[in-house]
């Protein structure tokens, strides 16, 4: 097995993110269904985590003292699968069997079947609690590593997120770093119109979290924010990542209709052409 690809170089990471966008769209096209928009909005952050900042290895997917990631917005599974495949957790050929019967890659992350998936998610609002549990266990066992989690912005409408936010601050979980993929859209339309969640940073701050807002597509800003989050003492940290749903594909960007839609063959070709040129 080749060594894990790992770099601090922003241009190199951006190139990986572009490749992963193509993988995401290719697997969604092959499956014929799935979530394009939220996978593309999240992928720059996943790239920064899996190929620069997280201490992890496909050789030891269940090792004790390593960084962990929980994708609470489980519908962005294609983004996670693309990153895990590239990182060497399983062969890339599996990407093309996404959502197929008895395939390794389920519609939403399913830990028992997929190496590298820490825990099953998909029902919104539950992942931050799982991450709190991991962070508490890590503290008991003296882990030096961090637990990372990502929620969507529409997902913040789930009350359980705030139960978890309360608990994370109560237990002073400074080994927990959460991202909010704040792409502004959910299935039924704009988050602000369906059920507004802003100001997200102030809400988390009021719950006792350290907060920081970044451009979720600016690799340098993301890397810097991760380092900031990991360095926090005495409280959990949240990085509110301002993102664009469908980022990188002009005809998908900012369109709620691409929340749960897969590209056709023609749309995939157009998207790849656009991503390759960029």
């Amino acid at each position: 097995m080749k060594a894990l690809e790992r770099t601090d170089d922003v241009a190199a990471l951006s190139a990986i993110a572009r490749d992963l966008r193509i993988d995401i769209l290719t697997m969604l096209n092959a499956s014929g269904s799935g979530h394009s928009g939220g996978s593309l909005s999240a992928i720059d952050i996943l790239t920064a985590l899996y190929f620069s900042r997280m201490d992890h290895s496909p050789l030891y997917p269940r090792g004790k003292d390593r960084d962990r990631f929980v994708l609470s917005k489980g519908h962005a599974a294609p983004a996670l699968y693309a990153a895990l495949a590239r990182a060497g957790y399983f062969d890339r050929s599996h990407l093309l069997s996404l959502r197929k019967l008895n395939a390794m890659l389920s519609g939403h992350p399913f830990a028992p079947s997929t190496p590298g998936v820490e825990i099953s998610t998909g029902s919104l609002g539950q992942g931050l609690s799982l991450a709190v549990g991991m962070a508490l266990a890590g503290r008991l066992d003296g882990w030096k590593k961090s637990v990372f989690a990502m929620t969507g912005d529409g997902e913040l409408q789930e009350g359980q997120v705030w139960e978890a936010a309360m608990a994370a601050a109560h237990y002073k979980l400074d080994n927990l770093v959460a991202f909010v993929d704040h792409n502004g859209l959910q299935i039924d339309g704009a988050v602000a119109e369906v059920m507004g969640v802003d100001p997200v940073d102030e809400k988390f701050a009021a719950f006792g979290w350290a907060t920081r807002t970044v451009n979720g597509h600016d690799m340098a800003e993301i890397l810097d924010a991760i380092d900031w989050g990991v360095a926090q003492k005495g409280k959990p940290s949240v990085i509110v990542a301002m993102t664009v749903k469908g980022k990188g594909v002009s005809f998908m960007e900012g369109k709620a209709s691409w929340h749960g839609t897969a590209p056709s063959d023609e749309q995939l070709a157009a998207a790849i052409a656009e991503l390759t040129l960029a």
């Binding site: 609690s129 266990a137 608990a167």
Partner: peptide, 16 residues
């Protein structure tokens, strides 16, 4: 906060 309690328990369980 029972919902969170169960989630936290699950996170602990997968951590050993």
């Amino acid at each position: 906060a029972e919902a969170n309690m169960i989630g936290v328990a699950a996170g602990m369980a997968v951590s050993g």
